[in-house]
Design a protein around this nucleic acid. Sequence first.
DNA 1: CGGTTCGTTGAGGCCCATCAATCTATGTGG
DNA 2: CCACATAGATTGATGGGCCTCAACGAACCG
Lengths: 226, 226
Amino acid sequence: MTRSIGASKDFVRESDSADHVHIVLEGWAYRYKLTRDGRRQIVALLIPGDTANPDTILLKSRGYGLRTLTPVKVLSMPRERLLVLAEKHPGIAKTIAWLAMIDSATLSQLAVCLGRRSAKQRIAHLLCELSERLRSGDDTFEMPLTQEVIADTLGLTSVHVNRTLQLLRSEGLIEPGKRVMTITDADALCRLGDFDPDYLHDPRAGSTGSDAAMGFEQSNSGLRAS
Amino acid sequence: MTRSIGASKDFVRESDSADHVHIVLEGWAYRYKLTRDGRRQIVALLIPGDTANPDTILLKSRGYGLRTLTPVKVLSMPRERLLVLAEKHPGIAKTIAWLAMIDSATLSQLAVCLGRRSAKQRIAHLLCELSERLRSGDDTFEMPLTQEVIADTLGLTSVHVNRTLQLLRSEGLIEPGKRVMTITDADALCRLGDFDPDYLHDPRAGSTGSDAAMGFEQSNSGLRAS
DNA sequence: CGGTTCGTTGAGGCCCATCAATCTATGTGG
DNA sequence: CCACATAGATTGATGGGCCTCAACGAACCG
């Protein structure tokens, strides 16, 4: 059920049949889409704990690929088993829906970045988001992202990412290292990137006084069951 | 439970408490997000049948607003009632999850447009998508979209949208009219926009031979119940 | 030690934003 | 019915952010 995969490996291709849901347990990966002319847009960066393809549970989407950045350990579950579980346990069904909704919210944020922010702002926003999601506590965190990966995430070119990173460094906001990023001025970076740290913390709305909601399990990790 | 709203009205603001789910029954609307400096990114165009805020069911997202384009009739349901229904009826729970996943898929497409396509391609893609979603059959359809709305959807300015529309017209691909759009050369437009008509037709994956899946209701409209 | 990936730097140019003005259509009130 | 206001479409001029092409350096690895 769990699988170890090397770095830089496509473990789901666009053409694959979408019959398994994958959860990243260790390492980094990403979800991406390709245009006909070969350009790439990374649609989600996946860190430990993330569900790589939440929509596979109900959709024959097949519209994207999944690729590892580092060596990765994934938990893979057959879609149909999840469907059985979801039917029997409302808590699991709810968790699945919740994952999809988190995905939507994250993608909306990405759309704002891609559509309405400058390169500087996009990078600032991405770094704030990663720092937040990794909960590094420290302002320094491992970031195994190639400049080209950053570019394909933010709709830029690697050349321009390079120059923009240097710009941010020269302004004292960040200090990039090898596979490591240090945020020197978190406040300024958040302001620049128009980053709202709350949008990730969306607690489940279910627990606000509704009897119905109380019937659901409150665990955040309904999919971790073997 | 159903409400009629005039044109160009915010019926949900970013700051509103997110306690109702809205389904568009008639008219056009959109979901949008604002940046701190006042720029706007439209994150979803809503046509009759669309759920305006599927994520509200489980998330206290509140990160976007909803605004009408034309006079609109919406069906609004309290979030908590949907939670109760979802718990009792797996089919409804599944429909809710399904809506969220469709939303993700659509947003992924948008991200590709915003990140990796030229203005010409973005507009071509949008028009192909609208034509498909409206199932107009005909190549002419009502399209109550301001050039500024198109711009805010595609991450452009209205000025550039104007010029690009003229360009597409001069190339014989489209024929814009007042509140109406005619697609003159659908094949060329799809090719230009790299449009895949299948990505919208995602049938539910549940019905492919799984006993578990068969247990779910197959209706596409689990939310239309009063 | 040669190959490969990734980062870095430079020159040049285009796509699209910005600013601003004009024009049209629509509607509104007197 | 006309004067006026407003929203949206159109057009021009200008500039800049980012892309493209290209070359080189640096780190890593078998």
